[in-house]
Write a protein that binds this DNA or RNA. Structure first.
Lengths: 337, 337
DNA sequence: TTTAGTTACGTAAACGTTTACGTAAACCGC
DNA sequence: GCGGTTTACGTAAACGTTTACGTAACTAAA
């Protein structure tokens, strides 16, 4: 038998209301009874049942996180940030892995509703009308992470993808490169696809380097395999390329591996810059130069925002994090020749 | 206002008991009322509140997972297996990241108790007496994953570490290597440390290759940095080594990177075999040969076991998964010279 | 001394379910 | 057509909390 508030009340000779008041330190009890009750609680090893609490308070101290691919290493750091912060707030996280599948997403949203989560963090994907309407009906706060909605006004945290892609490209240019190609993810992707391509093109234009759309080849996603497949296509089209901007670190590693297979030396014959700065960027050979998103911090911030919305019941400012290129060894400085 | 069972009952002109019965298909209602009620449910978009349910049924359809390092890529696949399986069972997961910290672990256990999880999966770490006692008091099922307890009889799923290490070492030997070193994790670690060292030593002995304990150097953990640091130490002690068995893929990648820095070519001058077969094993240069644990399957199995224990309220057989070396390109066949 | 206000509680309703128990009607066998 | 069983419900208690409301005792002001 588990110990309930009643047991505590009985043993301490008070009512359950008093115990509850002490537990939630609401006014209405004397120092002495507090001491007595606290002793009994300690003695019995009582801990309030958070389910019963949740039933009344409508707070479950649980938040839901929706993300497309749990396996993506990108999300790893982000989730770490979310979970650490959530736990620091005395809550816990339910992670839902939608695989970018609309039906699955709706199922998960229903699950999160049933479980009465206090709030939802929606990541890395376009917020469809259907999702939005559902969450709106739930009347729970939501924040967007690594994505942004042009249709609905929901607070978000992300980096400026176009700007970051611009920075990466510019870095290559400043290192003396002129023949630069790009391997992008899905260009239909309005949030991580197109903007990065735009940033690339914009940098090239700004520095008056002629580019055609053939300089960027796209795959469906941002994975290692995508890079592996895309690189040979790109290099065949443009054998004179000296540098490549990859839209993700995983793609970049795919490029490096493919280049290795083709006996093209990185960075001597080909420079590569990635995007994200995930863990494995440092593990590649050569270590990957990349433009970093502060992934952990972004997860942290999104979580803080959710809690602010939950607790103060008001909306909150979006936040654009700044990116930063971290130099390692996959880009050659052509000026030093 | 949210829609409750009362609303459904009123609109369908039945009692809440009947609605509940229909929802849980317990006997006691006619086809007609069922149809009627189902219609109303659909019409109102009613979904039962799982918190209220949990309060009575003592089932929250939530399980807790304790793991030492969320960032470890190892755990990624495992967690995927756990979460997929859990969701298929209509439940959800709370992931707790203990950092191998006893105090934190106890806090998380308390959290899981408060949240009334139906069961606990405890991974990759020694089950301390304190933890065991706590869970025992909770009276909830637990299974061990990638670990095993010699003190308490708890069902587990893992691979046979010693055997797998033996297999890895034997693979190297069969490829003609005789000067083999090992980089292990923490040898104090009774579950992932010592057994792998034993397996290594055992294989060497079986093939009558002299080894000293100096052939194995240990670090605190199983990370990339550990491999990076350990390799120079090892190679300085034994410059004639032709192959290395790394106790994890991350260590192996560290070894490859360190070797690259020292201008030692893998696999031409040095062969490396890893352990785990995580995602990035295929991304390294050269792609890493490694002994694979079926990580996803192990997560899946552990979850199935937990659910069986929860639902049938009985204990369950432990399961040892078989390992397998996956050949890639980081080991040179010396016989072919 | 009376009155108004405060303090320190206790009682009971509420949160949204499940379920033990009760009951009236229908059915069955003889 | 009578006892007994089954079917199809309804009523109300229970799960473990929080909290609105009530109240008795004490305090302070007039």
């Amino acid at each position: 038998m588990t110990i309930t508030i009643k047991d505590v009340a009985k043993k301490a000779n008070v009512s359950i209301a008093t115990v509850s008041r002490i537990l939630n330190n609401k006014p209405g009890y004397s120092k002495e009874t507090e001491k007595k009750v606290l002793e009994v609680i300690d003695e019995l090893g009582y801990h309030p049942n958070s389910i019963a609490r949740g039933l009344i308070s409508k707070r479950t101290h649980t938040i839901g996180v929706l993300l497309p691919k749990i396996s993506s290493m990108l999300m790893n750091e982000v989730i770490r940030g979310i979970e650490d912060t959530t736990h620091q707030n005395g809550s816990s996280v339910i992670v839902c892995h939608t695989e970018s599948n609309g039906q699955k997403t709706m199922q998960y949203l229903q699950l999160l509703k049933d479980k009465q989560v206090d709030g939802i963090i929606f990541t890395s994907e376009r917020l469809k009308e259907e999702y939005y309407q559902f969450v709106k009906k739930m009347e729970k706060p939501m924040v967007l992470l690594s994505t942004e909605s042009y249709d609905f006004s929901i607070p978000f945290v992300k980096v400026n993808d176009q700007h970051a892609a611009y920075t990466a490209t510019e870095y290559l240019i400043k290192k003396g490169h002129r023949n630069i190609g790009m391997i992008s993810g899905n260009p239909e992707d309005q949030v991580a696809g197109q903007p990065r391509i735009n940033g690339f093109l914009q940098a090239m234009n700004n520095y008056q380097i002629p580019v055609s759309h053939e300089h960027v080849v796209s795959e469906d996603g941002f994975s290692f395999e995508d890079g592996l497949k895309a690189f040979p296509r790109l290099i065949r089209q443009h054998p004179d390329l000296t540098a490549i901007f990859a839209a993700s670190d995983e793609i970049a590693l795919g490029v490096i591996s493919a280049a290795y297979e083709m006996n093209i030396k990185v960075p001597d014959q080909l420079s590569v810059i990635g995007y994200d700065n995930i863990n494995i960027a440092q593990m590649s050979i050569p270590p990957l130069t990349t433009v970093a998103q502060p992934l952990y911090d972004m997860g942290e911030k999104a979580t803080e925002m959710i809690f602010e919305m939950i607790e103060k019941n008001q909306t909150v400012e979006s936040r654009i994090f700044s990116h930063q290129v971290v130099e390692r060894k996959s880009v050659k400085d052509l000026n030093k020749e």
